[in-house]
Structures are given as C-alpha cells and as structure tokens.
Design a protein around this nucleic acid. Structure first.
Length: 493
RNA sequence: GACCGCGUAGCUCAACGGUAGAGCAUUUGACUUUUAAUCAAAGGGUUGCGGGUUCGAAACCCGCCGCGGUCACCA
C-alpha cells in the first residue's frame, strides 16, 4: 500500500465512523476518572489473574493493537495502559467499532480493572469511544522517530514516540517552575519587561530587527532584559525582582546556541555579587535535588557535583594555571604589552584591543572549556564588564563572576554599577571598542542612564541561561533537545 | 560563514558500479490472554533536487536543498 493509500484508508475509516457513530470531531469532552498511572497505582495490590468490579474511565492515544483488537495499548500524559476486549464475546457492533480504531487514534474507555495472568494491569472495556481520528500514521512503534531532523520538525510525533523527549522537556519545564517557586519563596517579585526594544542593550550581541508599522519605527528583539529590570528596582517596585523569559540573539546556531533562548535574570538591592554567588549555587543545587534527589548529576561520562559551595577562582590566576606559562596578565596592564604576551602563547588578537579583551580571549581559548565542575570565575576585567562596579582599590577588575560548568558559561553576575557618570563613560568606551567588521557600534541608552541618575540603590544582579542549565540537568548534549521547537530552516513547500 | 559527514518505502534500516530489499506499519487470511503478539500471503520506491561520467549510477563527479558534527561568531 502506498503512503497516500494509507492516508486515504484512514479517511475512509473516518467516513465510516462518522456514518455509524457521528463525527468524532464533534466530540467536545470525555469524562475521564483515572490517568494510566492512577489506575496502576490504585490497583497495584491486585494479584496476577485477579479481577475487580471497579469501574474506571480512561483515555489516551492508541499505541498498539494486538490480537485483532483484543488488546489495545493507550498512552496518556502519565503512562501506557492496556485495554482488553474479549474478542469471542463482543457483539458484531462492538467488533465493527474495534475495526475502526487505527494506531494513533485517541480513544476513551470505560471498564473494569483487573490484572492479567501475565501481570499487566488492564481495563476490561465495557464502553469504547473513538474520540479523535489520526489521519496520518504514527512513527514506527518500536524504534520510534530516530531522525533528528524529523524529531525537531515534528515534536508532537517525537513526544509520542520517544519517552526520553517527554522526560527531557518535562524536566525543563519543571525546572523553570521550580526556580520560580524558589524565588517567590525568597520574596522576589516576578516582573515582565519589553521584548521589543528601541535600543537593544544590556549585552553585546547582534539583535533581530523588526518594524512597527503604525509608529513607522525600527524595533529590536531584546538581547537582554537587564536595563529595564534595573529601572524597575530603581523605581522601587520591589527590592528583589526577577524575570524568566526569552532573549533573542542573531548569532550562529550551535549545539549550545539557539537564536531564542530563555534567561533568568534577577536583581536584589543592597547586596553585592557575593550574594549572587550564594543564590546561584542555591538555585542550581535546589534544582538538582528536585530533579535527581541529589546535588550529583550524571552528564555524559561526567558526574557534576552541584553541592555548594563551588570554588571561586580569579580569571587571571586561572589563565596562569591552565596555560602553564606563568603568564600573569596583571603584570602586563598595558593593552599592547598584554597582547604581545598572549601572542607568545599562541592567542592572536587584532591590534587595538583592550587589556580586558586580551584577558577574556586567552581565558576563552585556554581555560573556559576545561572548567568542568561548577566554578565561579571572579575578578573579570572591568573593560569587558561595562555594567559592573570595579573594585575601588583594583580599578581594572570588576566585582563580577561568571559560573562555568562543563566548559559552558551558565551564569554571569556582578555588583551593579550605579554611578550614572561612570556608566555613561563605560558606554562611550564600549561604543568605541573594537568589534567585528560588520558590527554596528553599541548605541547608548540615555533613558537607562537617566534612570540611574534618578538614584539607583547598590544591588547585585545575576543572569542564568535556562537552556544550558536544562541541558546539564537532563544529560542533553544539544540545546535543541531541551527546546520544544528549536529554530529550523523551513523546507520548501 | 568554512570544513567534514549524512539524506533509500509512512517509520527503523540493508544493498561490490550490474534486476532497489528486510522489519514495523497497511491490506487479506489464520490464530486468539497478548504485551516489539505469532503464522501465511499481498501491495507499497522520482534512492533529497538538478546535471554529468558510464553499456549500466542509490553508489563515482559537479551544483543546489535540508540536517548533524567541528570550527568561526557569540562580553
């Protein structure tokens, strides 16, 4: 049978079903008393072969039909469940209805619970209703959907066919809900800030550009919520705010980058970055325990231990340690000198980069990917931290940390700069800094500086990538596994 | 963006340059307490798309499309 014949056959099945029992797509509800798991849990004590007179009503997708409809396996959002019809006792009408069921259909069943002699909790159907027809066939029942492209393009099929996908995405959403709950309990107010920005600030990344017709105005999808969140704290809406939502960056796609990704950003007045270290550790540890019952999480061949506290290491010190060259970039505060030192160990940089950019580049090339267990990298250069306070006694160094796990940056936090004069100077500096050849200069957000001039309390702020954290928590090697609908290039037609 | 790899039936996968196959699914029949049900049979293909080499291309070459990986990019 050709594939289009299979679809035609299913349409014919639907027509026949409609003629005999009415259009299934007119059905609006089904009175479901038990989930698959609820049935299995409630009747766990039944012995093999034992029957009950307990009536339950269940519903789900048809995953398997065996022995000509004698055994039907359905899947709901909790588990699989077996449905039984005594094929020798069914009426011709019942047999006709059974023959109208195809793999993938949604059915509702009322019946009596028993445990089969082989040990399977089963519902002996007394009533059966086809609640919805699948006009396209499901993926192969045993091997499922393997083709990664098909899995991401048709996530609904992947969810039905691949238990791992259900587990991974559910864990991701539980994780995000868990973080929200954690922050609510600590007095944080969840807020919302604009996705459409006139100036895409708060980070350095290429934004997506869009256009507002009525205002005839170019708008940018936000690359970070940072500046607006600070303005809310400045306004005193709460001394503790957070937002968990999407950022959009018009950069390359990789196993660790999706054009839209979910960030947690939180800000707390009257604390510094060390409090951000504590809350970062607390959040991640809390999630590890919530999902795995322990701070130790398996990731590929690794076991990541999120039990606090995590080591805090200076960025320049780590460079010294990992390059094994005794290169102390603090001893080379001149940018050109530092650049030459970096070149000596094989890190080539364009002339004109700042000292901080040298440190960052060497770190990125020689250290970052080696930080496997959770590590806070502290003492980042001020020059690459335009929104962070520097240490008064160490003007090159920001009161900032980035947390690395498995070589990935998962968090970034600092004591937030609150001097509007300094902030303007930093932005000016940033605007002049050497960037990529095609990159537009950083625009300066005057509204933000004006807000800061209105009086901003000292505060700590932290950002954490939810997608990468979800990857770590679900042993996923690609960011696309933890995003329900990752960005895909469309197929023609 | 560069390089490497992959693309065969609805799904999972085979096929030395020599007639494109199997399992699942589908159809028909048998069986009927199965659980990847089983048994027998049948139908199902623009081998991603377009060109080329060749007596002959799923395979070799070129271009394109899509996906994956690595790198680049990404404070």
């Amino acid at each position: 049978m050709r594939p289009e014949d299979e679809i035609a056959r299913r349409h014919a099945q639907l027509d026949k079903l409609t003629k005999l029992y009415g259009d299934p797509f007119h059905i609006t509800k089904f009175d479901k008393t038990h989930s698959a798991t609820a049935v299995k849990t409630q009747f766990e004590a039944l012995a093999a072969g034992e029957k009950t007179t307990q009536q339950v009503s269940v519903a789900g997708r048809v995953m398997a039909i065996r022995n000509g409809g004698m055994f039907i396996v359905i899947l709901d959002d909790t588990d699989r469940l077996q449905i039984f019809h005594d094929i020798k006792a069914v009426t011709p009408q019942q047999k006709e209805l059974l023959d109208l069921i195809d793999l993938g259909d949604i059915i509702g069943v009322a019946g009596l619970v028993r445990r089969t002699p082989r040990g399977e909790i089963t519902v002996d159907a007394t009533e059966l209703k086809i609640l919805s027809k699948a006009l396209e066939p499901p993926p192969e029942k045993f091997h499922g959907l393997k083709d990664v492209e098909a899995r991401f393009r048709h996530r609904e099929q992947d969810l039905v066919a691949t238990p791992r996908t259900r587990d991974t995405l559910r864990a991701r959403y539980r994780m995000i809900a868990g973080i929200r709950q954690f922050l609510y309990e600590r007095g944080f107010l969840e807020v919302e800030t604009p996705m459409l920005h006139v100036i895409a600030g708060g980070a350095s990344a290429k934004p997506f550009v869009t256009h507002h017709n009525a205002l005839d105005l170019p708008l940018y999808m936000r690359i970070a919520p940072e500046l607006h969140l600070k303005r809310l704290v400045i306004g005193g809406i709460s001394e503790k705010v957070f937002e968990i939502n999407r950022n959009f960056r018009n950069e390359g796609i990789s196993p660790r980058h999706n054009p839209e990704f979910t960030m947690l950003e939180l800000y707390q007045a009257y604390v510094d970055f060390t409090s951000m270290i504590e809350i970062t550790e607390a959040i991640v540890y809390h999630i590890a325990v919530m999902l795995h019952g322990t701070g130790k999480v398996k990731f590929g061949e690794l076991e990541l231990d999120f039990t606090p506290p995590w080591p805090r290491r200076g960025m320049v010190d780590l460079i010294k340690e990992y390059t094994k060259t005794n290169l102390d970039l603090y001893a080379h505060p001149d940018a050109e000198d530092a650049r030459e030192q970096a070149a000596k160990i094989g890190v080539k940089l364009e002339p004109g980069v700042s000292w901080g950019q040298v440190v960052e580049a060497v770190f990125g090339e020689r250290v970052e990917h080696k930080l496997i267990q959770p590590t806070h990298v502290v003492d980042l250069p001020k020059e690459i931290s335009p929104l962070a306070k520097a240490w008064p006694d160490r003007p090159h160094v920001a009161q900032r940390f980035e947390t690395f796990v498995n070589g990935w940056e998962i968090a970034n936090a600092f004591s937030e700069l609150n001097d509007p004069r300094e902030q303007r100077a930093r932005f000016m500096e940033q605007a002049e800094q050497k960037r990529g050849p095609d990159d537009p200069p950083h625009p300066i957000d005057d509204d933000f500086i004006k807000a800061m001039a209105f009086g901003m309390p000292p505060m700590g702020g932290m950002g954490m990538g939810m997608d990468r954290l979800a990857m770590l928590m679900t042993d996923s090697q690609s960011i696309r596994e933890v995003i329900a609908f990752p960005t895909m290039r469309p197929l023609d037609k």
